[in-house]
Structure formats: C-alpha cells, structure tokens
C-alpha cells in the first residue's frame, strides 16, 4: 500500500495552471490569425494543444504526484491509439489506387 498522503494543490498553483491554459489558448488563436503557411499552422496548433493537455493531466488530474501506474495507463492509451493510426496509414497512404476505388 502506498503510505503517502494525498497531494493538496494550493490555490496559487491551480490558478497559475488555469492562467497558463488561458494564455496558451490566446496564443494558439493568435497564431491562427497570423495565417502561417499550410503545414505550419497545424503543427504549431497541435504543439500548443499537447502542451495544454499535459498541463491539465499533470496538475489538474494530479498525475505529477500520483502513483506512476496511472500515468502509464494514460500514456499506453495514447500509444495504442498511435498504433491504430500509424498501421492504418501505412495502408491508406500507400494504396495503388489512392482513395476508395468504388
């Protein structure tokens, strides 16, 4: 059994994370209006999204302090999702007749 006490977040930390998320939202919308060339707009947007998601997971969902197995569950869910996407893409991107040939 884990003997540790539950972590209690301070107001300062919670509000700080909330503020950071707000700021990142403004950043990502701002970058959108800069209208970066095609691949870059989505890349920047996704990097910001991953960063925001990580903040929520670590500090709102307490994974930073929690037992590591819970973090492992979250990561493995994303790993298996990546397997679904990547192995499907090696079909859909490399078909002789690209798109639905019906």
């Amino acid at each position: 059994m884990s003997g540790h006490e539950h972590h209690i977040s301070s107001d300062k930390l919670l509000l700080g994370v909330g503020g950071a998320l707000l700021l990142l939202t403004i950043v990502t919308v701002g970058v959108h209006y800069l209208a970066l060339p095609s691949p870059w707009s989505i890349i920047v947007a996704m990097i910001v999204a991953v960063f925001k998601g990580t903040l929520v997971a670590l500090f709102f969902m307490n994974l930073y302090w929690d037992e590591k197995f819970n973090l492992m569950i979250l990561i493995s869910a994303f790993v298996f999702l990546a397997l679904l996407v990547l192995l499907t893409l090696i079909d859909t991107l490399f078909r002789e007749i690209p798109v639905p040939s019906f």
Binding site: S41, I42, A57
Partner: peptide, 14 residues
Amino acid sequence: DIIWIFLFPLFYLI
C-alpha cells in the same frame, strides 16, 4: 476538457 483542447485546433484553427 483535454479532448476539447484537441478538437478545437483540429476543426477551428486549420
């Protein structure tokens, strides 16, 4: 919330 954080750029910001 996290899922929306990803849905938002994927649909609205592209």
